[in-house]
Write a protein that binds this DNA or RNA. Structure first.
Length: 214
DNA sequence: ACATTAATTGTGT
DNA sequence: ACACAATTAATGT
């Protein structure tokens, strides 16, 4: 598929045709692979990413050492942080890391401002995107504040499975612990407990979710 | 094919 | 949290 078809495929039904053409004309497609850092904390943001394929995880860095996963973004989403940063010319407060390989369309911010005035569907998209992120943030906070680690872990596994479109998660206990800002031993024990409950199956370097898709 | 090392996971204190 | 054992994968000889 060429660039235009990809963009049309992703945003058909969200934007009017005219806007999609403008996006296709202005966007620069950037492929990424798992582990790539797309946005680093403290960096200024000059282009806005629209996700075409793949998934990206949004991480927050903790006070001293350690990270915390806030949420994933998927196809058709954008990073709400970018929107805020662009408007205020501020540094990024978050880090974006590719969860798996995929493709983003990078759009210059000045175009985005122009579209804000020009297209209703774009405004709606931006607002809805904000709303989604806000809700995900709220639920992330709920998890942190009210859930125990075993529930957070299960929740994390399901999210990870969802964005990867599979029930097999190729992560080590270490990596998972890092993203949940916990220690490896705790994760190992909880994973084993989950395995005993029959909710997951443990192999080396990958974890199988049992149960319903999505 | 074998030994060595590193990485990953399991367990006890 | 720490230490260490056990298992598996990776690499060199």
């Amino acid at each position: 598929m060429n660039q235009e078809e990809l963009i049309q495929d992703t945003f058909r039904g969200i934007f009017e045709a005219e806007l999609i053409n403008e996006i296709a004309a202005a966007a620069r497609l950037v492929p990424f692979k798992e582990g790539d850092v797309l946005i680093e904390i403290g960096r200024y943001i000059k282009t806005m990413p629209l996700l075409i394929t793949g998934a990206i995880k949004i991480m927050r860095e903790d006070f001293d050492e350690g990270e915390l996963l806030l949420y994933f973004i998927e196809k058709g989403d954008t990073c709400a942080m970018t929107l805020a940063c662009c408007a205020g010319d501020k540094k990024s407060e978050i880090r974006a890391i590719a969860e798996n390989s995929g493709l983003v369309a990078m759009v210059p911010v000045n175009r985005m401002e122009e579209w804000m005035g020009k297209y209703k569907s774009w405004r709606a998209f931006v607002f809805e995107s904000y709303n989604n992120r806000f809700n995900e943030l709220l639920s992330a906070i709920d998890h942190l504040a009210f859930m125990h680690m075993d529930q957070r872990l299960l929740n994390y596994l399901r999210e990870a499975a969802k964005v990867n479109g599979t029930h097999v998660i190729n992560k080590t206990h270490q990596e998972i612990a890092y993203e949940l800002n916990s220690s490896r031993v705790v994760i190992s024990r909880l994973l084993k407990a989950l395995e005993n409950e029959g909710k997951i199956k443990l192999n080396r370097s990958n974890i199988e979710l049992s149960g319903s898709p999505t």
